[in-house]
Design a protein around this nucleic acid. Sequence first.
DNA 1: TGTTAGCACTTGGGCATGTTGAGTGCTAAG
DNA 2: CTTAGCACTCAACATGCCCAAGTGCTAACA
Lengths: 335, 335
Amino acid sequence: MSEPRKLEVLRAIVEDYVHSREPVGSKALVERHHLGVSSATIRNDMAVLEEEGLIAAPHTSAGRIPTDKGYRLFVDRISQVKPLSAAERRAIHSLLEGPDDLDDILERTVRLLSQLTNQVAVVQYPHSNRALVRHVEFVLLAPKQVLVVLIADTGSVGQKVIEAGSDVSNEALMALRSRFLGSIAGTQLALLPQVLPSVVALCPPDLRGLAQHLAHGLQALSDTSREERIVMAGTANLARSNVDFPLSIGPVLEALEEQVVMLRLLSDMGDDPRGVTVSIGRENPYDGLAEASVVATGYGSGAKVGILGPTRMDYPTTMAAVRAVARYLSRILGG
Amino acid sequence: MSEPRKLEVLRAIVEDYVHSREPVGSKALVERHHLGVSSATIRNDMAVLEEEGLIAAPHTSAGRIPTDKGYRLFVDRISQVKPLSAAERRAIHSLLEGPDDLDDILERTVRLLSQLTNQVAVVQYPHSNRALVRHVEFVLLAPKQVLVVLIADTGSVGQKVIEAGSDVSNEALMALRSRFLGSIAGTQLALLPQVLPSVVALCPPDLRGLAQHLAHGLQALSDTSREERIVMAGTANLARSNVDFPLSIGPVLEALEEQVVMLRLLSDMGDDPRGVTVSIGRENPYDGLAEASVVATGYGSGAKVGILGPTRMDYPTTMAAVRAVARYLSRILGG
DNA sequence: TGTTAGCACTTGGGCATGTTGAGTGCTAAG
DNA sequence: CTTAGCACTCAACATGCCCAAGTGCTAACA
């Protein structure tokens, strides 16, 4: 039995199954693909594939479906990324045009990606490791409440309300504002934890308590604005793509709602900067996603974009879309 | 046949059906509720109720289920709001404690509400009609790009990137900043459209073009920050509560994704400031929600909080939860 | 040694049929 | 107006049957 043909058979099974949603048998396979052999031969090959755990039969007299392991092999060795259609390229181009808010861009990106793939799209806020402090603002909301705003040169704006221990005067606040601004404007967000203490230390003693609070706020902002948020779209696709094929959607929705879970999921995925990473079925660290796959890749300075869908998914096309969108995103945010 | 008993029968049907998810028959009704009459009598009553369109039978020999109209009558005339359990009160108290970001508060509110009700919870950003301009910031991102930040005294922060027609100098920007700040600080956001043009008009001619752009940005922010966003949580409840009862969840997810749809839905609901408004099944303006109900109420200065779930829902409890959460929210944001 | 044809065997799905029980509507009597 | 009684309906379930798809195996073949 020839090794190349075995792979070819696996490829055919995956493709047919993804397309038809039904277990595929030896005869149908021979008919649809012109592998120059008979169905009997295919049956032998399939027996081998099954022994190796790459495909499985739902019941005795049914066709075979790929296992997680089968998909894995398919993705790693067999599939070749399909080029996007012209229409799709155009969609990416036009929808991501018009420079705007970071929020806006990400929002449109996930929408686009979810439409392209018919899956749930997810994008992580860009890492702002390299982002610089552009501006700092303190706003007195109540006698003891201050709104701290941190603006990065990437266009991302973070805000947080902090409680000062005692009453705060507007003058003190303004004084501290220029002091902080003078010291940290232009600094990398990532360096704030190291820089801030010295700023506080240099403050006049009567302001030091307040300065301490403000510094805490800023530091918290530099943390959270870094990467700890995600945006998603297309959850309705979950229901649609599973009309008569029950990926139990409850656990998946739960996972999607837990930003922590999604963030972990994304960052756990290797970040081969060239390619797209795929995590299939039970490979996922989260049990609720045992019947789901994640296709993701990095963009910009390392944050992730990707999609989540049923294991039975058109990997080549999906991977192409994810990759293309990631590239555009890098380009837009990089400039 | 007595009118009060008829209503009592309807009440019993609604309650049993909500609880059991199964059509309820005359015999079972008599057994579970001690209405001092026989099943035959109940049957007669049910025939009347059916004639009036308040209940319906899925097929000839099945029990009855309430129609939208039946639920309507139930909600309007029969149900009495159940008091929350002590544990629930405590949950509301503790979870909404700790003054923080507006975003944070809303986020926690929807989580709480979705847990209390086991439905999808939705909250609209508070109306900031009465909100005042606290601060304005312009940040030069690129030679022709300016980030406009508008901070209201409610703690809400809006941001938007605008394109200036030509290169912008930092000095010009700072000059305009103090000019705008001087003119509009303390103004109601709602009045910005009227105030801004005069500010622009008073600018020196060479800055007027840029000022115009900035004014546009600010105005847009005052619009969007007003009410045009919603936060939600608990979408996974959709799948859970419908394990063996198919509210087709696809269209609902679609509706939830379209902020526009949800906003319209919420604002279309009467805002009786005292009570909770309920929109049942086909009463909803959006077709995808034909099998869903919305329970909502206003809070603060008129924005909405509410939940969305299957028509077959425990209205009294849900209404109590929505109302309680809305009250707490008003209190927190009002202070 | 790998491929193929042929064949017996397995099994889920579709279909027709029968049975059951919950639930109804109606009627006549209280 | 209420009630007991009864005939009737019909979804849900069960049973049995057949069919088609698909398999694994064996023996012949190149």
